[in-house]
Structures are given as C-alpha cells and as structure tokens.
Design a protein around this nucleic acid. Sequence first.
DNA 1: TATCTAATTAGAATAAAAACTAATTAATGT
DNA 2: ACATTAATTAGTTTTTATTCTAATTAGATA
Lengths: 96, 96
Amino acid sequence: MNKTFKALANPLRRQILSMLRAGPMTSGDIAAHFDIKWPSLTAHLNVLKNAGLVHAERFGTQIRYRLNTGAAEDAVAALMALFGAGDDTEGDKNDP
Amino acid sequence: MNKTFKALANPLRRQILSMLRAGPMTSGDIAAHFDIKWPSLTAHLNVLKNAGLVHAERFGTQIRYRLNTGAAEDAVAALMALFGAGDDTEGDKNDP
DNA sequence: TATCTAATTAGAATAAAAACTAATTAATGT
DNA sequence: ACATTAATTAGTTTTTATTCTAATTAGATA
C-alpha cells in the first residue's frame, strides 16, 4: 500500500486518476492535458501502474490507460483503516 | 489537500497517525517507537501538523500530539471524491 | 522496405524529501 | 541563577522524485 500512497502524493497523478474516471484514455490524450513533455507523463503513468491504480492495454498503435477501480477502493479502505474505520464502527457494506 | 496527500505518502508518518488513534502522545513517546533521531521525528510531526492532520499542545515541559479526526475524515472524503464516490453512486450516509 | 505516428526507455540535470549532528529554546526544579 | 529534561530549530548531507533531451521500440500504412 506504500506505493499507492506515494502515487497519490503527486497532484498531476491525482488529476490523471480523476480524468480516467470518465473512461479509458490514451497516453496521448492524457499528455495533451498537461504542460509537461511526454516522457515525464510516461513516468507518472508508470508510477500509477506500478501501484496498481491503472491498467495499460495496447490498442493498435496506441496504449489505453484505464482506472483500476478495485485498487482505488482498496486505497480508500486503507485510508479509513488508518484513521479508524471512518464513520462506521466496523463492517463492510458489500458483505452484510 | 495536496499537503495532506504528501503527508500520507510516508510510511513512518502513517504509522504515527495510526498510533495516535489510541489517544494523544508526547513527542518523546512517539520517538521511542522509531529508530530515527529526534529532529527527524520533529520534521515528520511538522509535516503532519502543517497538513492539519495532527494538533500540538504544550503540557508543561512536554508537547502532546493528537490526531485531528476532522482532517482525517476530510482526507478520506477527498480520496473517495477522486475515485468517484466509492461504491455508492451518490449520497452521504450521514445526511440521509 | 521505408516511413509515419504513438509511445517508451536511457541517461543526465534539477528539485524536493528525509536523515543526521550541533546548537538553541522552553518549562521545571534545585 | 543554574542545571535538567523535553523538544525544536539551523545547517548540512544523502536519498528519492521529477523533469528534460535524445534515442529507441511498436504497430500501421504507402
């Protein structure tokens, strides 16, 4: 989970995650939204990928990144656990 | 919120937060749990304080740190917002 | 095959975070 | 006033993150 928190520490990476909520995007689409060179963007995408927060898939000549919602929910759960389970004392909404 | 995510990026700081769930602790008590020098610990505590995650209060010769649960919940909310509100499509359990 | 677009990897430079030692402040007790 | 305990600030070094340019890989297409 350390990689996840480190990945979330960068505002640009958080913005990428936020963008991917709307659906998968290619590296180029993502790069177009930021004022950095492409290799820098690739580096950020690798951090997100290594943390398991996104998944990459090649589509012909381009590569699509999509949000890994499972990992995202795990991150939320980990943060809640860190602070003491949020507002519910215990339990899981998905496992009643 | 950037300061908050940066503060959470460090494992030692997350452990401090976790420890503080059980109640306030002095700087010395916290330092005793880690294998780092005191000034390093102070630096970590400052990061947490500047992010609003902990609050410091002097008690005589020592200083007590306590978890700021409000800021902690804000962090969870921010992370859920980033990923698209967790598993509920919308809505707030505390405001039915 | 040559070429074009999309994206990555390699390698170097810069910036930021984290650690340490030494010196200082703050409150208390003698 | 002086010493003691608790913790911080100052300044430096080391480590890790971030960014860039240049070169390379992968697939598509003429």
